[in-house]
Design a protein around this nucleic acid. Sequence first.
DNA 1: CTGAAAGCGCTTACAG
DNA 2: CTGAAAGCGCTTACAG
Lengths: 340, 340
Amino acid sequence: MIKETTTLKQIAESLNVSISTVSRALNDHVDISDVTKNRVIEEAKRLQYVPNILAKGFRNHKTNIIGVIVPSVTHYFTSTILKGILLESEKTRYTTIISETNNNPDKEKEVLQTMLQFGVEGILMSLSKQTKEVSPMLQALKKRPLVLFDKVSSKIPCTQIVINEVSAAFDAVEHLVNMGKRRIAIIKEEKDSYNSEKRFEGYLEALKKNNLEIDNSLILSTDDSSIKEGKRLTRQLICLKEKPDAIFCITDSLAIGVIKTLKKVAIKIPSEIAVVGFSNSSHSTIIEPNITTVNQPGNRIGKLALQQLVKEIESEEEYLTSKFIEINTNLIIRESTFTG
Amino acid sequence: MIKETTTLKQIAESLNVSISTVSRALNDHVDISDVTKNRVIEEAKRLQYVPNILAKGFRNHKTNIIGVIVPSVTHYFTSTILKGILLESEKTRYTTIISETNNNPDKEKEVLQTMLQFGVEGILMSLSKQTKEVSPMLQALKKRPLVLFDKVSSKIPCTQIVINEVSAAFDAVEHLVNMGKRRIAIIKEEKDSYNSEKRFEGYLEALKKNNLEIDNSLILSTDDSSIKEGKRLTRQLICLKEKPDAIFCITDSLAIGVIKTLKKVAIKIPSEIAVVGFSNSSHSTIIEPNITTVNQPGNRIGKLALQQLVKEIESEEEYLTSKFIEINTNLIIRESTFTG
DNA sequence: CTGAAAGCGCTTACAG
DNA sequence: CTGAAAGCGCTTACAG
């Protein structure tokens, strides 16, 4: 279906002025008299003129498009970041296009290339879980500014928006210690993802500071931070001779699996085993007991990521160092660790 | 940060051929010899040529952009539809841009205009909850094809992708009847939203078919289908002299509120009061008991909506009738109505 | 205060 | 098989 559109030329002809004048009038150029401006604006309205952004962008060498690449839009935390990005982008002249990688590095590479080809002026990106090879991102970085958020990598020399992973995990574990827990297990990721690594670091620091010994039987890993894996690993933990009295999960999904299994075997939460999650996903207040978890302000992360990218797009300098911007989180204490 | 880019001209100069030839070679035009094609392709690769999509689109009078407008990306069902749209769009030459309205009609109007201004070739849209005035959509429809999904309105003469609301609700209620329930309450929306209205219709049909009388004290409405409202209205229902033995909620959020409250007052689910939700949100298996709910295939809805829009964009004819395309749903039976 | 003209990067009808 | 030229809709330096 094709519908015709009004151009500057038509307004000019209808008013017997030049195209230049129309263009200037609509852009509120100082040179144009108010009388002319008003005539042009009126006529533009009458003809329902809508500027051709494509011609405009083409002419001005800018697309005003920012590309956003995430593993999956259905992931709750990701969707809150997207919300922040969308809201913030409205305050700017930029429009965003969003693509998913479904955690597939090949897809990630392809999406990245398509976006560059589409002429995005910069890219906001959360890496796929499987990404080992960062060369597609290094290539992209040669062409356009790139800002990473959430799933980041220090191998890529660009700005990265992250949360204070280490201290967030530290606080969560220390909270368990304050609740009188001494045998604190952790369920983390097998692969050395930035997030998991840092959270593990915070866990170790908290144990150390509180003079608790590191017991390898309490350190479990999975390559799939899902409810299912949470259930499986819990069964493993409760079969230990010396059971843990708390489990720190690096995702809420794992925590949900843990809680479901503990309830099934009638282990009391939090008195026998306390549980902490990570993310403050919408699930964390649905399940009972509600989960004590680390609140990650997705909106703020998205907002900041967009602001930073715009800054880099509009700046003359190159940002080719691995600069980490940390956003603070807070621990939300709920029933899975504390009965008030 | 500005980084320079290779154009057809540079390839042409470097190869001593015309720009036309380069353009044709890269577009695999039959007229060009294989030798020339290969030389051009090689040189393009060497110079890391990336076509300027803006110039291309401008020249060809097409943007290849489809606008997607939804109330909120963090809404789970919406995000599954978005996933379907994004996945399907990759199979086409179209890129999508997504915007939120946050259920604000003013915002909705603004977003619509921005998208048209941006030169989208068509629009996929789920209406905001508050939308009463459909004129912005009618205006848009004059310029570009529009396809509505999920939150639709028969006042807008365009294609609308919906689920079989009536029969889905009918099946859900009849399932309760089959479980031996006789006093089935409904929590629906105050406003006459398309979805709520149809689901209520299905509820009434199921009662009628099963010779159950309509009891107005069992028909509750809210203008906010939230967990909180589910809780509030449940308190109201359990204070009735003749309590319901089942509650059909037109959203999962309401059902969660209902369940939380019933558990708190120790009313047994489903034996005393059974609960049915709607959407199969990710929450429905987190809460215990798991919720019996209507599964809406978001991916398929998104996929179909995109396909339909592309069809309309590429078709010569105008689609200006209110055509409803219904997608089938299925009831997923879980613990909130059935203990097997 | 206004206009003629060039040019952004690409495609394509026309000519050879 | 290849090239010169026009033109998509817009902006802007230059001239008046």
